[in-house]
Design a protein around this nucleic acid. Structure first.
Length: 208
DNA sequence: AAGCGGATCTACT
DNA sequence: GTAGATCCGCTTC
């Protein structure tokens, strides 16, 4: 079997992850929204100030899950940089395509498109906790499994959500027009929006 | 030892 | 659209 290779450039891996399916146990998530973070050169990254106890996984080998808590929620990143560098991709939203019952049990009664909308909700739907820190998602025998995308979706880009530093860097990527993409915070000022391919009219992620 | 600010979410107006 | 709940890690005193 061929082992998946993650590109060390986090924006490249971020785009590549869109429409890929991440399994954790019996729950499967088609990834629809991500953000890229690099290391020492990215002031918005947790890795910016160098290794600490919290971000240690970021400086480990690629393919590992970097989890952190914030405001009482767990957020999950896939590390793609070589050991010692510190960069990865934050999983922001997805579409639950299998294990729906399990995801619903964890999330309670919310509309389907909101099951894994937002980093905290995504982690909760998949059952990701801090106990999953450092998990190797590329290991065939592990709890996690990553299925590469079957088709490349139309991709929109914009500034990362909730970051005050490097706010001009358009390293948030989402599947254009996908209803599961988080919208609770306006993404991009109209007119300043940068897209690469196929911005659909009716794109569900534009600001109000 | 204490304060601050953050890669958030939900509810309410 | 806006405000408030709510938690932990990192910086500073």
């Amino acid at each position: 079997m061929s082992r998946i290779h993650l590109d060390p450039l986090s924006p490249v891996t971020a785009r590549w992850l869109l429409n890929a399916v991440l399994w954790r146990g019996a729950v499967a998530l088609r990834i629809t929204e991500v953000e890229a973070y690099t290391g020492a050169d990215d002031p918005a990254s947790h890795a910016w100030r160098g290794p600490t106890r919290r971000n240690a996984v970021m400086f480990g080998p690629p393919g590992r899950l970097y989890t952190y808590t914030m405001h009482g929620h767990v957020c999950a990143n896939i590390i793609c940089t070589p050991e010692g560098v510190g960069g990865g991709v934050l999983l922001r939203a997805g579409d639950v395509v299998d294990g729906l019952d399990e995801a619903r049990q964890r999330r309670g009664q919310v509309p389907g498109v909101r099951l894994a909308r937002g980093p905290g909700n995504l982690a909760k739907a998949l059952g990701i906790t801090m106990a999953d820190a450092g998990a190797d998602i590329l290991h065939p025998a592990g709890l996690f499994r990553l299925e590469p995308r079957q088709t490349e979706p139309p991709i929109s880009t914009g500034p990362r959500v909730g970051v005050s530093r490097a706010a001009d860097v358009p390293w948030r990527f989402w599947v254009t027009g996908d209803p599961t993409v988080s919208t609770y915070r306006p993404a991009i000022p109209a007119g300043a929006r940068r897209t690469d391919r196929g911005l659909h009219p009716g794109d569900g992620a534009r600001s109000a």
